[in-house]
Amino acid sequence: MTTVSLTVNGQSVTADVDPRTLLVQFLRDNLRLTGTHVGCDTSQCGACVVHLNGQAVKSCTTLAVQANASVITTIEGISQGGELHPMQAAFREHHGLQCGYCTPGMIMSAIDIVNRKGNTLDEQTIRAELEGNLCRCTGYHNIVKAVAAGAQGMAQTPLQQAAE
């Protein structure tokens, strides 16, 4: 067993884990944060995307012990005081989800795209930046619209961005 200490959605967490525990397993099984999903075992689908020190990573391809001393944000940690994060609101408003399974990873990736590429995103940029996220339901059409709108929404609520 190896001890890990990290901050998850603003809460300090310390636990002894089997070193082979993946970050996603730690989040889902130890912390019961089941919003982060597993959709593949080859690091491609992106259902497991969380933010590690502010950057989007695949939590299925990161050991929990590698995340020691880091700050993790999951889908459960981005809305504040009952208000949806602008990207969450945009996915709802633009029907950017159907079964909802890829959605947490999509939203965490989308926020990361905005953090890196800014609030005005053209369609081609969004499609290229979603390379690491698979959706089987939506055909991406409404996800692309949602990301563009969510990016604009994030510009209008700077507090939300600062929250991370």
């Binding site: 990736s109 390379e131 690491g132």
Partner: peptide
């Protein structure tokens, strides 16, 4: 290389 998440790790 890879996708944005891969490039971050």
């Amino acid at each position: 290389i890879g996708d944005p998440h891969v490039r971050n790790r």
